[in-house]
Lab assay of single mutants.
Amino acid sequence: MSGNGNAAATAEENSPKMRVIRVGTRKSQLARIQTDSVVATLKASYPGLQFEIIAMSTTGDKILDTALSKIGEKSLFTKELEHALEKNEVDLVVHSLKDLPTVLPPGFTIGAICKRENPHDAVVFHPKFVGKTLETLPEKSVVGTSSLRRAAQLQRKFPHLEFRSIRGNLNTRLRKLDEQQEFSAIILATAGLQRMGWHNRVGQILHPEECMYAVGQGALGVEVRAKDQDILDLVGVLHDPETLLRCIAERAFLRHLEGGCSVPVAVHTAMKDGQLYLTGGVWSLDGSDSIQETMQATIHVPAQHEDGPEDDPQLVGITARNIPRGPQLAAQNLGISLANLLLSKGAKNILDVARQLNDAH
């Protein structure tokens, strides 16, 4: 009898209710805020589980004197976190989706994509230029951005401005803007500013005609071990179906173009009346040469937790077992079709030249 009692006690200790789920994140304040929001949602869904947040620095956090596009290494903000995932030191990792490459290392998958916040870019102005827009900034004003995508589009749109690289986390960039006289304004992701509670610093939100956004911008991705079915089931509740389908289309477009950090590629997606609209573009580094096109596809946005595919093969690095396969494939095909259209119009040449120029500098 006593033996059975011990077995029952052991089973209770090993039951999922007692389990601590370890969540990996970057150390920056924004990353911690984003991770806290994901953990809060998981806690609400699984009140019996405990969650421990483990923060670590990544290569991208450490190399702050070089433009991201020049470092010449993929997975700048993800490699150390993936290493911890691989060694079973954490069970899942919360990322900004735009930091996750469209091809993940073997053994990993994006197990959830959370509801997207505003994906557009924002302009934050130096205190002396508050009330201005990019259009009304004085001639030769210097605007800071760490992104080739932003610089290429904005140089084309605002030729009277000069664009220079600015690195560091959000706090560091804002301090550089406010305390030094080098920059009249800087460009940042609206979602990051909003998550930090800095709505009052948003001086201008850039519309798609001015600057399309990065693939996955404004959404959070939760990376897990691809074979860890328990954790895949656990994080599945975080999937937002519309965000998922938009981001599958965007990531398929980028992957098929073979774009990345070192080339200016941008997108804009919208879901309306059962249609998914995808606009994508590529630019030369100075913005003088560009190709942009829009395509659409009829896609039914499923309700969360309709029964999805059981075999769960990944699409552009994403596993969404609780979302039907048909809409996911339709979104992926839309991204591939748009990429093929741009490639047929000469996108590869623009991107190759951009890559060579970026590598040469």
Results as ranks from 00 to 15, higher is better:
T136D: 12
V124E: 04
I318E: 05
V123W: 01
M295T: 06
R164T: 12
P105I: 07
K128R: 08
T243R: 05
K140D: 13
V103F: 09
A151K: 08
K176P: 01
P119H: 10
Q181P: 06
D36P: 01
R195D: 01
D91Y: 05
L85F: 04
T58K: 01
K345V: 05
T78W: 04
Q180H: 12
G287E: 01
H126F: 08
N200M: 10
L76R: 11
A189T: 05
R321W: 01
G280I: 01
K74C: 05
L238M: 15
M56N: 06
H268G: 01
V130Y: 14
K176Q: 13
R116L: 04
D312F: 05
D91I: 04
R167M: 07
E89T: 10
H256W: 15
L193T: 05
V142N: 11
P309Q: 10
C114I: 13
K128A: 11
H199M: 13
V282C: 08
D230L: 01
L85A: 06
C261D: 05
R201N: 07
P208V: 06
G308S: 09
A152Q: 04
D61A: 01
R150G: 04
D178F: 06
P106Y: 06
L244S: 14
G317Q: 01
E242G: 03
G24H: 01
G197I: 01
L232C: 11
D99Y: 01
H268K: 08
V235C: 01
G168F: 01
K87A: 12
I350V: 13
S141G: 11
V103K: 13
G335K: 03
T25C: 06
L49S: 11
Q328A: 06
T25E: 09
L85M: 11
D286F: 07
R116D: 04
T294P: 15
G259K: 15
V124R: 03
L97G: 01
D178A: 07
K79L: 08
G192V: 07
L285E: 05
D273Y: 11
H207F: 08
L177R: 04
G107N: 07
I21N: 03
G203P: 01
P159N: 13
E52R: 12
N88V: 06
H256I: 04
I186W: 01
F51E: 04
A270S: 07
D311Y: 07
Q194V: 14
L357V: 10
L245F: 06
L68I: 13
I53G: 05
H160Q: 13
T66S: 13
G335I: 01
L188M: 08
E310K: 09
A40E: 10
R22W: 15
T78S: 08
I248M: 05
A151R: 11
V93M: 09
L100Q: 09
V124F: 06
G144H: 01
L278F: 09
G280V: 07
I350C: 06
E179Q: 12
N169S: 12
T59Q: 13
L170P: 01
